[in-house]
Design a protein around this nucleic acid. Structure first.
Length: 969
RNA sequence: GCCCGGGUGGCGGAAUGGCAGACGCGGUGGAUUCAAAAUCCACUGUCCGAAAGGGCGUGCGGGUUCGAAUCCCGCCCCGGGCACCA
């Protein structure tokens, strides 16, 4: 709460022992060891090859471990105690691995391009590089203060000159690659060009490659490259002055960052062909040790649906006449239920479907129902359809997707032919069909799809049963076997058996859904009417932004307006200096094409180059890459931080990859983690990395929550200055309301780690953050909670050090019980560390420490085991104790203690005795005591005897050394 | 609606078929102190009881089992994600 509530005890009173572990001593110890670690380069991990390979000989027999955090954005407001939660967890794990025979790569970089530095630059005129570098400096200082054991030689920032070169280099690899669908992998585009030149492969566009001009060829290749430009509807956010990726737009069409409105606008932008990897991005999730929730989010985002595309020919209709006739061929629909094709009684196309215009009949067919002519009872199909489409266009996505919205649609006046039974079925335009999913058109099977059912009811369309519902479903709905489908209360959408589904060439009758799907797809394919198809929700990744503070593209444009990649030797392309960093922010309704800030760099935006056909003037690409670019492959920079060409040394990459443990927030589930997997797979295909996935194990740490307070206006007030009074919480003399929320700037409830360190020390802070609960759970921060861990460290210190002299206690013979508990704790703590359960590891150590406090008696072996066990979590105090008991080398690579199973055995064991499953007493018996003796002892226990008195013993369950349960009645 | 988590004391949590509530916070009482802070000791799920001991108790209702917080079936509630995705 308020800073006054914290009870600092750094002022050792005159009576307190001179060598008590208090905040002052903790701070001295921590400063000393942090300097020592830095001087000794304690946390440097050698590479097998190259300039960082010094010392590799000594560790080459060890296993490698790559332990990584999601790197932070170095914001100007510094860290709060929520930020380092994951950093502490990975540090503990990395330290544990160092003590159990691993060469551990653990470092921390900075995701340093991005909006805040740019916005700050706009406000102050200071160059974003200056503020970013200052912030990184203070972050490094704060992180070092927490005792995080990072290899600082590998601490890179995405804004570093060489890092930018690396990011641009990857971009070039993607630009110069295409996805070969036959091999299902990316390959250099040169191979595609060779195939096209030799006519071994034809262009998808149907054009003849050999007849094309150089410019036309370049344009054609853009349809294949993994990084390409295209003119498409993109998410345009006027208030951010930039376009955004789908993943950065919330479902109510606002920017994830800033919560500004986002509009769809056609613009030419850079795209990444992530859709080529849709299947692999889904399938390879099965190989990963990731939280199920994140895997599920990614599967959902890719949104794979397996089904069939089917052509519905347009019926040749006497009502229709006109020139559109020639264009009207067939409507291609996508369905996941091709087994219900015989039940398709109409077709619906979305209002945005490109063929809508060509589908409109000149007049209504005879007997067209009023319900089909639209709300205005239009005189012509054209009027009905155009009115309907205009209304749909004016609806926002939210309005169109509102829950329980009535299904609406209008008849086009034309008919399609159901390819399996030749039935003439009406074609509708309806806004429940989405233009951007599947083919933008559906076949409607009202009996077996709830949406189609609702539409059919609303527009009085036939409902034909082609899947026999289960008896369970029929009886649940009070229906009999022969109730016609249009009397059902809803569609039957579950699996059943096909009926009424046959024609001269194929019969599905009697088949289960899955078998029927396979059979009908084979038939459709044989008749050239359709084929098995898979569609995805995933869209290509929009990769350009109209901002200043990002990586420039290594691209120039020629006079024909086609993009040309610069050669690798010209990297990095550095950001030009500009007067004004601000994005072009326009009014929400303004249609102006945004000018990228780089367009203000007059001397830069045009460049004279000789790219092989003489010196010419080119226009530079003025967009920059999105913030995600730098985080896609930064683990490769950690491996080889100074490499200046290509991906890095293959020996080092093969040694370290993949990342064994990756810890970070769940907010990156479908952004960073999907993009990064995509780039990694492309780099894998192109031979630059050796693993199919970058991150083997993922852990999402929870959020740190804290009390937040709002005043009478509902505005958050600084929680650090709220005081608790008898009447409740008060800020500046006014009552405020208490809430709980994620710690951070927006709720004004940040707790400064430097403040906590000053009052308790970094070791107490580290322990408290871990003790609050399982790593993946949200945990409320309280300034009182940390005291318990501080007291524990003080006790722990006292277990080993005489508070008056500062010297270790004389070692003494421990009791058998103490020795047993030491070994039991070693076994438990080891297991907890391996399984990332630091909260219970701490509890076990507290238990042991409390036992020693109470019983005394600790030999050197026991004391050292305690120090070694706490070392990963509280490294400073552990180093100090390790030194004080006489060691000269760091505890960092000391062997983690082994437990002796023989030590866990005890002579006597206390066995609980139950009567009818209820605990009634305990008996103390020799360990390994036989069943008869144990039963005899149990029956003699006075309280047990009382409970079975007068009853007949039916059965006695005996688990040796564990439990006796007497069944008596 | 669908998918993924979760529901245990005043609070954070522990126990994954075998003594429910480890460990910590908070609380109560005590030691120390002129006093306080800090520190140490004891108690602390709930109800009955002086105690011994007993009843109840892990969201709700059933079931399996000698024995269920844990496994199964059916619900309820909370958090997160997706959502007219054919």
């Amino acid at each position: 709460m308020s800073s006054q509530d914290v009870s600092p005890n750094e002022q050792a009173s005159s009576e307190a022992p001179a060598h008590r572990y208090n905040a002052q001593l903790a701070n001295e110890i921590e400063a000393f060891w942090q300097q020592t670690w830095a001087k000794d380069e304690t946390y440097n991990a050698p590479n097998p090859s190259g300039e960082l390979s010094k010392g590799f000989e000594q560790v080459k027999g060890l296993k490698k471990a790559f332990v990584m955090d999601m790197f932070p954005y170095p914001s100007g407001s510094g860290l709060h105690v929520g930020h380092p939660l994951g950093f502490i967890a990975t540090d503990i794990y990395a330290r544990f691995l160092r003590m159990t025979g691993h060469n551990v790569l653990h470092t921390m970089g900075f995701d340093a391009f991005g909006l805040p530095a740019e916005q700050y630059a706009v406000q102050t005129g200071m160059h974003p590089r200056t503020t970013t570098e200052d912030n990184i400096k203070s972050f490094r200082h704060q992180l070092a203060g927490l005792g995080l054991g990072h290899d600082t030689r590998r601490s890179v920032a995405t804004t570093d000159r060489e890092f930018v070169r690396f990011t641009q280099w990857i971009f070039l690899q993607l630009f110069n690659a295409w996805y070969n669908p036959d091999l299902k992998k990316a390959q250099p585009i040169s191979g595609l060009i060779a195939d096209l030149e030799s006519s071994a492969r034809k262009l998808d566009s149907g054009k003849d490659w050999t007849q094309l001009s150089e410019t036309e060829k370049r344009e054609e290749l853009l349809n294949y490259r993994l990084a390409y430009t295209s003119e498409a509807n993109v998410n345009w956010c006027p208030q951010l002055g930039t376009v955004l990726a789908n993943e950065e737009v919330t479902k109510d069409n606002r920017s994830e960052r800033g919560n500004f409105p986002v509009f769809r606008r056609p613009l030419s932008q850079w795209m990444m062909r992530i859709t080529a990897y849709a299947d692999r991005l889904v399938d390879d999730l099965d190989t990963l040790n990731w939280p199920e929730s994140v895997k599920s989010l990614q599967r959902n985002w890719v949104g794979r649906s397996v089904g069939a595309s089917v052509d519905f020919a347009i019926a040749d209709d006497q009502v229709f006449s006109g020139e559109a006739s020639a264009k009207a061929g067939a409507i291609n629909v996508f369905t996941t239920r091709p087994d219900t094709l015989f039940g398709a009684t109409y077709v619906v196309v979305s209002p945005e479907h490109p063929a809508v215009q060509s589908l409109i009949a000149d007049e209504w067919p005879a007997d067209t129902r009023a319900a089909w002519k639209g709300p205005l009872d239009s005189d012509t199909p054209r009027h009905a359809v155009e009115t309907y489409c205009a209304v749909a266009a004016n609806h926002t996505d939210i309005e169109r997707q509102a829950e329980n919205r009535e299904k609406t649609g209008v008849f086009t006046g034309r008919f399609a032919v159901n390819p399996v039974n030749g039935n003439r079925i009406p074609i509708f335009v309806g806004d429940y069909v989405l233009a951007h999913y599947g083919t933008g058109a559906i076949m409607a099977v009202p009996a077996h799809d709830q949406r189609d059912f609702e539409f059919a009811k609303a527009l009085e369309l036939p409902i034909v049963e082609v899947i026999k519902p289960t008896h369970h479903w029929l009886s649940e709905n009070g229906l009999s076997d022969d109730t016609p489908a249009d009397a059902w209360p809803s569609a039957f959408v579950d699996a059943g058996t096909a009926v009424r589904s046959h024609n001269a060439g194929v019969s599905l009758d009697g088949l289960k859904v899955e078998d029927a799907k396979v059979k009908i797809c084979q038939w459709l394919e044989s008749q050239h009417l359709g084929k098995a198809t898979t569609v995805y929700k995933l869209r290509d990744w929009l990769f350009s932004r109209q901002r200043y503070w990002g990586e420039p593209f290594p691209i120039v444009w020629d006079e024909d307006g086609t993009p040309i990649a610069l050669d690798e030797s010209m990297l990095p392309i550095e950001l030009p200096e500009v007067e004004n960093f601000a994005p072009t922010v326009v009014d929400a309704n303004d249609d102006t094409v945004p000018e990228a800030p780089l367009g203000r760099a007059d001397g830069w935006k045009q460049v004279r180059l000789d790219l092989g056909d003489g010196e010419k003037t080119y226009r530079r690409e003025l967009n920059t890459m999105p913030n995600w670019a730098g985080s896609c492959a930064y683990y490769l920079r950690y491996i080889d931080p100074n490499h200046t060409d290509a991906a890095g040394d293959a020996t080092n990459e093969q040694y370290w990859m993949n990342v064994d443990l990756y810890v970070g927030g769940v907010e990156h589930a479908v952004l960073h983690l999907l993009y990064s997997r995509f780039w990694h797979k492309a780099l894998y295909d192109l031979g630059y990395v050796s693993t199919i996935e970058p991150f083997q194990r993922l852990v999402n740490q929870g959020y740190v929550l804290a009390d937040a307070f709002t005043d009478e206006r509902g505005m958050y007030v600084d929680a650090n200055n709220v005081v608790k009074t008898e009447d409740g919480f008060v800020y500046d003399g006014r009552p405020v309301k208490q809430h709980t929320g994620k710690m951070g700037k927006s709720l004004k409830n940040s707790v400064d780690p430097d403040f906590i360190r000053e009052h308790y020390g970094a070791d107490s802070l580290r322990l408290y953050e871990m003790a609050m609960g399982p790593i993946d759970a949200d945990r409320p921060w309280t300034n009182t909670g940390i005291i318990g861990l501080f007291r524990f460290l003080q006790r722990f210190w006292r277990n080993i050090i005489d508070e008056d002299t500062g010297q270790p206690h004389t070692f003494s013979e421990p009791t058998a019980e103490t020795s047993r508990l030491v070994h039991k704790t070693i076994a438990g703590v080891r297991d907890d560390f391996e399984n990332f359960r630091f909260n219970t590891a701490i509890a076990k150590l507290i238990e042991l420490s409390n036992h020693v406090t109470k019983n005394g008696g600790l030999d050197r072996e026991g004391a050292e085991a305690m120090i070694l066990m706490i070392a990963p979590m509280a490294p400073h105090v552990a180093e100090e104790l390790w030194a004080r008991v006489g060691h000269e080398s760091s505890v960092t690579r000391a062997d983690f203690p082994q437990f002796d199973p023989a030590m866990l055995k005890q002579d006597m064991v206390e066995v609980p005795v139950q009567v009818l499953g209820k605990l009634r007493g305990k008996v103390s018996v020799p360990t390994g005591c036989n069943d008869e003796a144990l039963q005899e002892a149990a029956l003699k226990e006075p309280n047990v005897a009382r409970h079975i008195e007068g009853k007949t013993i039916r059965k006695v369950v005996i688990i040796p050394d564990k439990l006796v349960n007497i069944v008596a009645n």
